[in-house]
Nucleic acid binder design. Sequence first.
DNA 1: ACTGGCACTCCTAGCCGGGGAGTGCCAAAC
DNA 2: GTTTGGCACTCCCCGGCTAGGAGTGCCAGT
Lengths: 340, 340
Amino acid sequence: MDDRKLEVLRAIVEDYVATQEPVGSKAVAQRHALGVSAATVRNDMAYLEEAGYIHQPHTSAGRIPTVKGYRLFVDRLGKIKPLSVAERRAVHRFLAEAIDLDDVVTRTTRLLAQLTHQVAVVQYPSLNRSAVRHLELVSLSPQRLMLVMITDTGRVEQRQFEAPAELGEGDVLELRRLINEQLQGKPLTDAPKAIGSLTELARPELKTTTSALARVLLDTVVSRTEERVAVAGAANLTRNGGYFAGSLRPILEALEEEVVLMQLLGRTDAGSGALLTVRIGDENEIADFRETAVVAAGYGPGAVVGHMGVLGPTRMDYPGTIAAVRAVARYVSEILEQNR
Amino acid sequence: MDDRKLEVLRAIVEDYVATQEPVGSKAVAQRHALGVSAATVRNDMAYLEEAGYIHQPHTSAGRIPTVKGYRLFVDRLGKIKPLSVAERRAVHRFLAEAIDLDDVVTRTTRLLAQLTHQVAVVQYPSLNRSAVRHLELVSLSPQRLMLVMITDTGRVEQRQFEAPAELGEGDVLELRRLINEQLQGKPLTDAPKAIGSLTELARPELKTTTSALARVLLDTVVSRTEERVAVAGAANLTRNGGYFAGSLRPILEALEEEVVLMQLLGRTDAGSGALLTVRIGDENEIADFRETAVVAAGYGPGAVVGHMGVLGPTRMDYPGTIAAVRAVARYVSEILEQNR
DNA sequence: ACTGGCACTCCTAGCCGGGGAGTGCCAAAC
DNA sequence: GTTTGGCACTCCCCGGCTAGGAGTGCCAGT
C-alpha cells in the first residue's frame, strides 16, 4: 500500500470526523495538499474501497471510513494531539482538589466528559486488586453492627448487619482486633480463605456472632459492590448532530448496567503492556455498540487497579480523545500513588 | 362548567395520552359513551378551548390538552388507578431485600423507573432532617484519620483528613468520645453550634487537632454531600415515540445536576399536608422543562426526610404514575420506620 | 503514472395536487 | 334552548415528480 493512499485515508477520516458527511475526491485533493488531482485521488479511493477501508453509502456519494479504516488510522496514522497547556493545567488543578477516592472518581468522570465531549466511564479501583488497609466495627445498637472496610486503594465499603446476640463493648473490640489481625494487609483475593478460618479463632461465646460477621465480610468482599462505576456526560450522546438518534435507547440502557460497562472498559491490560485500548464498532462484541467506539485506559499506582474510558460514535476525534484519556489516567494514577 | 364538558376534557386527555395524537370530536363521541353526537362535542370543545384547557396545533386539527387542562384533569378528573396485586407484591418483595440505605435508594429508583416507564429520581434522606446516631474516628496512619458519620436515617458519610500532629491510640479514642458526647442524638441543623464549641472542650495538647476535626465535621454536615440523589431509567426518555427528541439534551444534562434535580423534587411538603405533588410543564419554572411533568412525593419515617419522584413528558399517564409513586413512597417510609 | 473531460448515477430539496381529517357554522329537530 | 345533521372550508400529510448538484468511473491524452 502506497504512502499516498494512506494519506488519502487519513484525509478521509479527518474530514469525515470533522464534517460528519461523506467526503469526496475533490475535497480531499483540495483541502489536503497532496499535490495530485482529484482524479488520482479517485483511483486511490477505488483501491481503498476494494481493500475494505472505506465505503460509499450509495453510488455517487463520497466515502466513509469503515471500522477497518478507523482501525488503520488509529494504529498507524493518528498522531496523538497532546493537550493544550491550559487543559493540562485545568486537569491538574481540578483533580488536585479532590479530597477522597469518591471525589477523585466523580471529578475524573466529569473531567473526561468535558475534555472529550463524550460519555465518560470510570471504574472504582477493583476490589480484586486491592488489599485490606483497615476494618472497623461500629456498634449502632446492642445488636446492630456496622462493618467498614477501607482498602489500600482508598475504597470504603460499609455494611450493616444484625448480630445474633447482644454484644458488649469489649466484645466489639475483640472482634475488631480479630478481623484486623487476620485480614489487614491481605489482598482481597486471599481474603475468603482467611475469613473462613475466623470462626475457629474466636472465643466460644462469640462463635455464632463471628460466623455471622464472616458471612458479611465475605459478602462485602465478593458481592455486588465488587465493581463500581461512575458515569458522566450522557448528554453528550446528543451531540454530533444526534448521530445516535436512532440507537440512543440501548446505549442509555447500557449506561445503567454495570456489567455492560465493565465489559466495555474491558481487560485493557490483558497480556500486552499497552495501557490504552481503542475498541471500534463491532470490536466491542455487543450488538448495540456497532456504531460506538471506546477509548479506555488502565490506571493505578504502579499496577493497574481499575479502568477509565470514554464512549462515543465511531466517527470521533481519536487523536484528541486518546490524548485526553491517557493524560487523565496518568494523572489519576499519580494522585493514587501520593495518597497511598 | 358543565359536567359533560369535563367528561369531554377527560376523554381528550386520556385519548391523547394513549395515542399521542390530537384528538377530534368524532373520536371522542364514538369511543367514550357520552350519548351525544360529534357536533355537540364540537361545541363543548370550542368552549374548552376558549377557557384555555385545550388547543389546536392548527386549524382543522384535533385538540391537545394545555397545561391548564392537565392540571384540571389531575386535580379533579383523574381517578387514581391502584397498582395491581402483582405489582404491589413485586414492590414489597424487591424492597424488602434491601440491606442498607444505599440499597434501598438504588432499588427504589429502579422500581419507580420500571413501574412508571419514566425517569426516576430519589433523594437520599436530607441531612437537614437527620440527627447524628454515631460518629466514628478511624486512624488510617499516624497522621491520617477517617471520620465516619452515621445518621438516624441510615446515611453514612465518610471523610478522610490529615491531622496536624501524630496521634496515639488514646488520642483517637478521646476525640471520638468527645465528638460523640457533643453531637450524638443532635439534629444536624443544630450541629454547627455544637461543633463550634468542640475546641474549647479539648485537652490543650489536642486543641489544634480538634479544630481541624471540627472543620472536617462542619464540612461533612453542610457541604456538597448535603443532598444526594440517585437517578434511574434515563433510557425511558426515548420512549413515547421519542417525544423528547428535540429537547433531550437539556434534560440529560439536568439529570446530572443535583441542584436542578432538587429543585424539581422541590418542597413537596411545603405548608400543605399533601404528600404528593404534581408539577406540570412550566409550573416547574425551569425553561427546559416546559414539556415535562414531575410527580413527586415525600417519604420518611413519620416526618418527611426526603423526596422521590418521576419525570416524564407532560402527556403521561397521571393516574398510574401517581399511584405508583405514592405506593412506593409509602412502602419506603415503612421500611425506614422499621430500620429506625 | 497522472490528469482533464465527460457521461452517468443517485441523492436531495422543492413543488404540486389529491385525499382526508377535523373544524365552524347554520338551519332544522327534539 | 340544547342538540343534531349537513356542508363548505381549511390545512396537514403524503406521494410523485422534477431540477439541481455532488460525486463517481472510465477513457483518452499527456
